[in-house]
Simulated assay, not measured.
Amino acid sequence: MNISKVASRTGLTSKTIRYYESIGLIEAARRLDNGYRDYSEQQLQELKFVQQARVLGFSLDECRELLELNRNKQRRSADVKKIAGEKLADVETKIQQLQAMKSGLCRLIESCAGDENPDCSILTALSDQ
């Protein structure tokens, strides 16, 4: 299957697919006589796998590790669960950081009169920090 069809079926761009090949995340597609890439069903499935993992926030290195575990039929599910648990902890930390940012921004916005006066408590607060 050609790269445009794979892109359509995975939701990835052709550029992203070529990049994943270039860094060895997925096996390079075989080349047809005309030089076009020809992707197998397995490569399609692995690209879908990576796309789903990326949606969940896994880094490319983590995707590589998960792909290796997925390919290894002797894997331990505990290894997969550990990676997912670490990602969840990262997400929870980011959520806490975003909530703190939101609270800070809300306080700044509430403190600003938002009128025609040039004095702005937001700018003052940012300058004082």
Score class of each variant (00 low, 15 high):
D61K: 12
L123C: 06
R107G: 05
K102N: 09
A29D: 10
Q43M: 07
S4M: 08
Q51F: 05
C63A: 12
K87R: 15
Q97N: 12
D128W: 11
R75T: 02
E27Y: 00
G85S: 13
T13D: 06
Q45T: 05
A53N: 07
S111R: 02
L67R: 01
A125I: 09
E62I: 01
D119W: 07
R30P: 03
A29M: 05
Q96C: 09
R107F: 02
K81Y: 07
E68G: 15
K87P: 07
G35M: 00
L126I: 15
Y19P: 02
C120L: 10
K102S: 14
Q45Y: 09
R30C: 04
L88V: 12
N34S: 09
V50R: 02
L123Y: 08
K82W: 10
Q99M: 13
Q99L: 13
L44P: 01
G24Y: 11
G57L: 06
K81G: 03
T124C: 11
D128H: 14
L32A: 15
Q45P: 01
E92N: 12
S59Q: 04
K48A: 05
R76Y: 05
K15V: 07
Y20Q: 02
F58A: 07
R37W: 00
I83H: 05
K102C: 11
G104L: 04
K94E: 11
V6T: 12
E62F: 03
L105G: 03
I3A: 00
K15Q: 08
G85W: 07
D115S: 14
E92C: 04
L12I: 12
L32R: 12
S59G: 03
D61N: 09
L25C: 11
P118A: 08
D90E: 14
K15W: 01
I23F: 06
Q99H: 09
L56G: 01
Y20N: 03
